[in-house]
Design a protein around this nucleic acid. Structure first.
Lengths: 224, 224
DNA sequence: GAATAACCTTAGAAAAACTAAGGATTTCTA
DNA sequence: TAGAAATCCTTAGTTTTTCTAAGGTTATTC
C-alpha cells in the first residue's frame, strides 16, 4: 500500500469541513485513494499545521477557503494570505480554492496571488464537482467551475492592456469611492485619474456614458 | 419528444468523424439526447452545410477541426476561418474545437478568433472527455482539456501588458526573421525594435541572454 | 578576413502622461 | 430649492517615455 496523501482542509464552517471529509472518504472507498486528513478552522490553526507539516510531512493537497477570520496577530488576513504562505513553504502542494466569492476582480487576484490548481465557486459545486476536482488536480490537470472558466475565457479574449492602476481605479469606482478620495489610494493627481477614466471609457467604448456603465462593461469583459 | 439537437461535424479524417458519431450515438442511448448529425470533410462542404442551415435549421453544436484543406476559391484557409464564419452567421451555436495543434500562440489565436465553448487537444482527449465536453457545453459550461486550461491559467497569471507590436516582434523573432528586416513588418525603426526587445528581455527576466532564451521563456509563459 | 548582422550608446525630436489650477456643470443634501 | 460638494473639462507647463538617427563595437558567417 502506497503512502497516504496528506490533505489539509481549511474552512471556518465545521459543516463544510465535514462535507469535505465525507467526499474524501467516498474517494477512499470508491477510487482507491488513501488520505491522511488534517483540518483547521482559522488562520492560526492552519499556520500551526503548516509549520508542523513543513518539517515532517508536507501536504499533497490543501482545500482552502478564502473568507476566514484573520489571525490573532493580524499578519494573515484571509485565506488568500494563507495561500501565499503555502506557496512559499511548499512547492509541490496542490491547492484547491473553494469560496463563495464570485466576482472577477477577486478571482483574478486569487489567481495572481495563489494560482490554485483547483478553483471552485461554492454555489456551483456539488458532490460530483468536488470528487472530480480532487481526481483531476491529483492528476496534474487544473479543475475550475463554470464561473471561473468563463472568467478565464474572457481573459484570453480581451486584450485591453490595463495596468495595475487602471484595475485599481475600476475597482475603487465599483466600490463607490469618490474621485476626490482616489488620489489617497492611487498615487496620481485628480487630473491624472480623470484622464485614465476617460481613456478607460474609450477602450470599453462607453465614452460620454456614466461611471456605472463603465463598471458594468468592465465586469462583462471580466476585467473587474 | 423534444426537437433534436442539430450537430455539424467538420473534420478531414473520415475515421475521426466516425469516432465522433459513435460518441453522439452513445449519448443518444445513454443520456437521453436526440441528435441530428451532419458532417463535412472540407471547407467547401462545410460552407454549403452552414449556408443551408442558416435559412432553415441553425446548428446547435459544431465540432470543428482546425487543420483543414483550404476552400477551392482560397477564401477559407482553415478551420479557424470557418469558425469565424460560424460566429458571424449564428449567434447561439456552440463551437467545440478539436485539434492536434498544441502551441500557445495558435491556441491564443483560436480563442481570439473563435472563442470556442469547448476546446480539446486531440492527443489528450478520449471518449470520456468528448462525452463530458458535449454534455458540459450544451449545459452552458465551457470545457477545455489540460493543455488549454494550463494556457488559460498562465494567461490570467501573467500581467506583462504586451501590446500588439511586442507580440508581433516575439512572433517574428521566433520565426527567425532578421532584425534588419523587421522594420518592414513592424513599423518602427531598428533602434525602436531593439529597445523593445531589450525591454521584453527585462520583463521576462532574461536580460543579457540570447533571443532564443527570450522566445522560449515567452512560450513558457504562454505569451507566444 | 571581409562582409553582414546584431548589439549598444548617444543625442535630440516627438509623443504621452501627469500636475496644478480654475471654471462649468452636475449631483447631493440640509 | 438654494447652497455645498463633487465631478467634469479645459489649459498650460513639466516630466517621463518612446522613438529616430547615426556611429561604433562585437559576434557570426560565408
Amino acid at each position: 500500500m502506497s503512502k497516504p496523501l496528506h490533505v489539509l482542509i481549511i474552512d471556518d464552517h465545521l459543516a463544510i469541513i465535514e462535507y469535505y471529509e465525507r467526499i474524501f472518504s467516498y474517494l477512499s472507498t470508491n477510487a482507491n485513494f488513501v488520505f491522511e486528513i488534517d483540518t483547521a478552522t482559522n488562520c492560526d490553526a492552519a499556520m500551526l499545521k503548516l509549520k508542523n507539516a513543513f518539517k515532517t510531512n508536507p501536504y499533497d493537497l490543501i482545500f482552502l477557503d478564502i473568507s476566514l477570520p484573520p489571525s490573532k496577530d493580524g499578519t494573515i488576513l484571509s485565506g488568500e494570505d494563507l495561500g501565499k504562505v503555502i506557496r512559499q513553504l511548499f512547492n509541490s502542494t496542490k491547492i484547491v480554492v473553494s469560496t463563495h466569492l464570485n466576482n472577477n476582480y477577486r478571482i483574478n487576484n486569487i489567481f495572481n496571488n495563489i494560482n490554485p490548481e483547483g478553483f471552485l465557486i461554492k454555489g456551483e459545486a456539488g458532490f460530483n464537482h468536488f470528487t472530480e476536482a480532487i481526481k483531476m488536480v491529483l492528476n496534474d490537470t487544473p479543475y475550475y467551475t463554470k464561473t471561473v472558466l468563463e472568467l478565464l475565457r474572457k481573459n484570453v479574449m480581451n486584450d485591453f492592456n490595463l495596468d495595475e492602476k487602471d484595475r485599481q481605479l475600476l475597482y475603487e469606482l465599483s466600490k463607490g469611492t469618490k474621485m476626490k478620495d482616489l488620489p489617497k489610494t492611487i498615487n496620481l493627481s485628480i487630473g491624472g485619474i480623470e484622464r485614465r477614466k476617460r481613456l478607460l471609457k474609450q477602450t470599453f467604448n462607453v465614452s460620454k456614458k456614466s461611471d456605472l456603465v463603465l463598471i458594468k462593461t468592465a465586469q462583462e469583459y471580466g476585467v473587474l
